[in-house]
Simulated assay, not measured.
Amino acid sequence: MAVFTEVSVDQAQKLAHNLGLGQVVALQGIEGGIENTNYFLTTDQGEWVLTLFERLTHAQLPFYLHLMKHLAQRGVRVPDPQAKLAGVRLGKGEDELLHTVAGKPAAVVNRLPGKSVLAPAAAHCAVVGEALAHMHLAGADYDRQQPNLRGLAWWNETVPVVLPHLDDAQRSLIESELAYQNHVAQSAAYEGLPRGPVHADLFRDNAIFDLARQGEDATPVLGGFFDFYFAGCDTWLFDLAVCLNDWAIDWPTGAHDAERAQAMLDAYQAVRPLTAGERQLLPALLRAGALRFWISRLWDFHLPREASMLKAHDPAHFERVLRERVARPYTLS
């Protein structure tokens, strides 16, 4: 369990009181996170998720929290940040959705129903593709701006830091791919891509399905998307590419899974058809998505931080995905 900052029941109760959430019944650390401290917070009024932010600052967080509130108010199934009661004093750097616990920026959101499906079928990919398109459109009028903090600028800063930990073949691949992505980002076609707020980390474990409910013909029912704390303003195509690189990949080899990819793309385009420029640059953005997560996993693996319990993801997985995307570019039919 990645618990960087311990939270006492008394601290959780004070926060619950300020939010009008009732009496704390249970507080349990959540396994799996590598960026933030997360707890399941149960009160006599419901179930919530308490997040303490270990890297992001009070100044950065309003973008994420108000984006989730914006999407939730438009019917997108995402966590809904809970606001302070009227009259509760705002601490330094806080607003109505952003709080402070144990000296760290914090937020409380409702706990969405369901569980992650780590071996998705084409039907799950279709549900995610449709919801992702709706999310992009719902966020189009969001008026706050913040760049994707794990975008190209961060790649350029971080690759030199991880290079000493790579062998010759890995260094050659990561340097050549970084140069390629800088070239793509300078192109007119890239500049013309539709963009707006993106999740930027919508992997299988950041979506849940309500397993107690199913649609017609046993269609999966989305419980929601969560963990928006890598979100930022970027191209919608990059967001879609990140999804395809996780939901529609053969895990052992990193190879493209055509059936699942087509299901996701068809469902996405039924809501928001891709532009000609997006269709042209999909292979490049699939490579970009693989590079982004290879770099971040190398960084987490070789330069870890202390936590109560922490296991970094294997960086070799996205090295395999990137090699597959370079060797066998995927193009839309």
Rank of each mutant, 00 (worst) to 15 (best):
S116D: 01
V7Q: 14
P197F: 08
L178I: 04
L237V: 03
A284V: 02
A153C: 01
Q11F: 01
L163N: 08
N245T: 11
Q82K: 14
A133S: 14
H124E: 15
E324W: 03
T5P: 02
V88T: 12
M309L: 08
A316Q: 15
K92H: 12
L98G: 04
T42Y: 03
L52V: 12
A133L: 14
Q82W: 09
F238I: 03
A207I: 10
A16M: 04
P283T: 10
G93I: 11
G151C: 10
T100Q: 07
H165T: 13
V159G: 03
P79K: 11
W155S: 02
D250P: 07
Q280P: 00
R328G: 00
A153I: 05
A119E: 11
L21F: 02
P62E: 14
D10W: 01
P147S: 05
R328E: 03
R111D: 00
L244N: 12
A312P: 01
D234M: 03
F4L: 08
G33H: 08
P197G: 09
P105N: 12
S187D: 13
Y330P: 05
W251K: 11
R89M: 02
H66D: 06
G91E: 08
L118Y: 04
L41M: 06
L118T: 10
M264I: 02
L56W: 06
V78L: 04
L52G: 10
D227V: 05
R292K: 13
L98D: 01
V242Y: 12
L193E: 09
L332A: 08
V24G: 07
E278F: 01
R325T: 11
L240W: 03
H58W: 15
P197C: 07
D201Q: 00
D250I: 13
L21V: 02
V128L: 01
G192W: 04
L310Y: 11
G32H: 10
T37Q: 14
A2Q: 07
T158V: 02
H165E: 14
L303I: 00
T275A: 06
M309T: 09
G20P: 05
R144P: 05
L98W: 02
Q82P: 03
L71N: 13
G22Q: 06
H256T: 08
D227F: 04
R272T: 15
K84D: 01
P62Q: 13
S172W: 03
A169V: 06
H134Q: 15
D167K: 12
E177Y: 00
Q214D: 11
L85M: 13
G103P: 00
A261G: 15
N110L: 05
V326I: 15
G232T: 11
E175K: 14
A218L: 14
A267R: 10
A86T: 10
T5F: 00
N245I: 08
I249M: 14
L71R: 14
V101S: 06
Y180E: 15
H165V: 05
V78Y: 08
A290I: 03
Q60G: 03
P220K: 12
E306D: 02
L178V: 10
D234G: 00
L67Y: 07
V109A: 11
V25H: 06
H17S: 08
N182K: 15
H70T: 06
T253G: 11
L137W: 12
A102W: 09
A212M: 06
V76F: 13
A258T: 13
A267K: 11
L97E: 07
V24M: 10
G254K: 05
N36S: 00
Y190K: 06
A316P: 01
L285F: 01
P194N: 08
N245K: 10
G29V: 12
A248L: 01
L132N: 07
